[in-house]
C-alpha cells in the first residue's frame, strides 16, 4: 500500500472527526467522564456485575454444597485458616463453616438477578402504559394515571411486604412484587416526557404518513423519552436492590435456600451483638458498595441529561 493511498484514506476521517466528536452520545459520554466520582461508581458497578456473573468461577467454595462445608470451621474470624483444607477464609465463616466471601459472591448474584429481572419487566410494563397514556390521551390516559397515582401514594415497601406476606417467600414472588411496585415510576416518567414529544411536529408528520400506532409510539415517540427513563432506571435499580434486601432481611423475601445479600445480613444479625460482626458486616458492605456505585452513576447521569445545567 502506497503512502498516498494511506493519506487519501485517512483524510476523510480526519475531517470527519470533529463531526463525530459532536455526536450526542460522545458528547454525553465526555460530560459524564468529567466527574471522577461517577467514573469510580461506573468502574465499581461493572466490577460488581462481573463478580456476580462469574461467581461460580471465582468463589473459593460453593457455599450451598453441603459437602464442601466443614462444621469445624464454623464461626471463624476473617483471615483464619481452615482446620481441614488449610485454605484461608479471608472474610471469615458463618456458624456452619460457610466461607463468607463465597456466600457474598453468590448472594450478589441473587440480589442482582432479582433487581435486573424485575427492572426489565417493570420497564416493559411501565413504558407501554406510559406511552399509551400519552399517545391516546383521554379516558385511557386518565385510567392509567389514576392507577399510577394510587400506586405511588403508597410506600413501595408497604405494598411489597403485604403482597409477600400473603404469597409467602420465593425468588419469583419477590420479582413479581418488585415489578408491581415499580412499573408506575416508569409509566409516569415516560408519560410526562412523551406528552411533550407527542405535541411536536414530527409526530404530526408521522401521522400524516399514516404510520401505525405502535410504530409511531415505539419508533418515534419512545426514543425521545429515553434520557429521563435512563435516569429513573438507574435510581430504581438501586432502589430495587435495597428493597429486595430489606424484604429478605425482614424474612419476607427470598427463601433460605437462595440467600441474597439481605438474607445473609439477617442471618448474621443475631451474631452481631455477640461480637461475630463479620457474618453481617461484610455482606452489608458489599450491598452498600453496589448501591452507592449505582447512585453515583445515576446522580451524574441526571446532571448530564439536564439541559439546564449544561453550558
Amino acid at each position: 500500500m502506497s503512502d498516498d493511498a494511506l493519506t487519501a484514506g485517512l483524510a476523510p476521517t480526519a475531517t470527519a472527526e470533529p463531526l463525530a466528536a459532536d455526536s450526542p452520545f460522545k458528547r454525553l459520554l465526555h460530560t459524564f467522564l468529567e466527574d471522577k466520582l461517577a467514573v469510580i461508581g461506573l468502574v465499581l458497578f461493572t466490577l460488581v456485575v462481573l463478580l456476580a456473573i462469574f461467581a461460580p468461577l471465582i468463589a473459593p467454595q460453593n457455599p450451598y454444597d453441603l459437602a464442601q462445608l466443614d462444621v469445624l470451621d464454623g464461626g471463624l474470624p476473617p483471615g483464619s485458616a481452615s482446620m481441614s483444607t488449610g485454605g484461608i477464609y479471608y472474610l471469615g465463616t458463618d456458624e456452619q463453616g460457610r466461607d463468607m466471601l463465597s456466600a457474598i459472591l453468590y448472594g450478589l448474584r441473587i440480589s442482582l438477578l432479582v433487581a435486573t429481572v424485575s427492572l426489565a419487566f417493570a420497564i416493559a410494563i411501565g413504558v407501554t402504559a406510559g406511552t399509551m397514556a400519552a399517545y391516546f390521551g383521554g379516558k385511557i390516559d386518565s385510567l392509567i394515571m389514576r392507577m399510577v397515582d394510587l400506586q405511588l401514594s403508597f410506600p413501595a415497601i408497604l405494598i411489597a411486604l403485604i403482597l409477600l406476606a400473603l404469597w409467602g417467600r420465593g425468588v419469583d414472588k419477590v420479582i413479581i412484587a418488585l415489578v408491581i411496585v415499580q412499573w408506575a415510576y416508569y409509566a409516569r416518567t415516560v408519560r410526562s416526557s412523551a406528552i411533550v414529544e407527542a405535541r411536536k411536529d414530527y409526530i404530526e408528520a408521522a401521522h400524516c404518513l399514516a404510520l401505525s400506532h405502535s410504530r409511531i409510539m415505539f419508533h418515534h415517540l419512545l426514543p425521545n423519552c429515553l434520557p429521563p427513563l435512563i435516569v429513573v432506571a438507574t435510581v430504581q435499580i438501586a432502589q430495587a436492590i435495597a428493597l429486595e434486601a430489606t424484604l429478605s432481611f425482614l424474612g419476607a423475601g427470598v427463601p433460605i435456600t437462595e440467600p441474597s445479600l439481605g438474607l445473609l445480613i439477617a442471618n448474621g444479625y443475631n451474631y452481631l451483638l455477640s461480637g461475630r460482626y463479620w457474618v453481617s458486616l461484610f455482606p452489608g458492605i458489599a450491598l452498600v458498595l453496589t448501591i452507592v456505585a449505582i447512585n453515583l452513576v445515576g446522580d451524574r447521569l441526571r446532571d448530564v441529561f439536564n439541559p439546564r445545567l449544561q453550558k
Partner: peptide, 13 residues
C-alpha cells in the same frame, strides 16, 4: 448520597 444508598436496616445495624 451515602444516607440515600445505605438500606434502612443496614444503617440500623
Amino acid at each position: 448520597i451515602l444516607g440515600f444508598s445505605l438500606p434502612n436496616f443496614w444503617q440500623g445495624l
